[in-house]
Nucleic acid binder design. Structure first.
Lengths: 128, 128
DNA sequence: CAAACTGTATTATATGTATAATACAGTTGT
DNA sequence: ACAACTGTATTATACATATAATACAGTTTG
């Protein structure tokens, strides 16, 4: 069963989009795998304190992207192959990197300063 | 006169928020200074191809934050002191750094990998 | 079988964002 | 003074997001 423990709604973007991204990041990080069971619409909505329709909207998008399989009455399952996982991972990495480079450049930060800043905010990550 | 040449509406967030951020980043980068003249609501809306009311909403927020001064009939001017500029700069840097660190960590990237990725996407920035 | 769960669909309501069309008061430039 | 610009305000409309309250069909489980 996919966990939503670390899901938080701080963002101002639509909740159904945040759910979508949460799943995609889970896939990219290898925490969410093919065949994994998703919480039901009602259960997840109760868990997150949001409307079932909002969860449904997110799940519908995931299905349209071919990432999950849903059938009336049955539980919804993740539907992934290794190629899909790699594509998602690459997409997320690229968009993240581009975003940070873009905003930092706009602030007039040098590459060295940017790297130092990120290193500092990485915090107590010791190993690696 | 403050330039909006490098302003683009790609983001999904509200346009008036994007205008707000654009100004704030300009302030932080030192491109926008105290006393600078803002384009009028009508002119900027025509320039960006959006509704005057949307620009007004952004300008109103800037005024509520004390960053601009507006008076009926008169042109709107930036209203900044060095302390304000530093606060804005620090806020933007912190939120950007936190955002990228958060998302990269969620993807299970190591600090070294993250730094390498950013360095790569920084592109052809030669000096510094 | 029957109860309790699934997914799916519909209708209504509220709010935020954006547009459109005006209107009016104050300032600026000729 | 007068025209052309400013800022500000109002009303109406449209769309996206989110909630609420149901309803129904299919499955899973005891």
């Amino acid at each position: 069963m996919i966990s939503f423990d670390s899901f938080v709604v701080t963002d101002k973007s639509p909740i159904y989009m945040q759910i979508l991204r949460y799943i995609q990041r889970g896939i990219a990080a290898g925490q969410i795998c093919d065949g994994d069971e998703l919480p039901s619409r009602r259960v997840l909505s109760a868990l997150l304190g949001i409307n079932p329709n909002t969860v449904q909207k997110a799940y519908r998008l995931l299905e349209e992207r071919g990432l999950i399989e849903s059938h009336t009455g049955a539980k919804s399952l993740m539907c992934l192959d290794s190629e899909t996982v790699e594509v998602i991972r690459a997409e997320l990495l690229e968009s993240d990197a581009k975003a940070v480079v873009g905003t930092m450049k706009q602030l007039g930060i040098s590459k060295t300063q940017a790297l130092a800043l990120i290193e500092r905010y990485w915090g107590e990550e010791t190993a690696e």
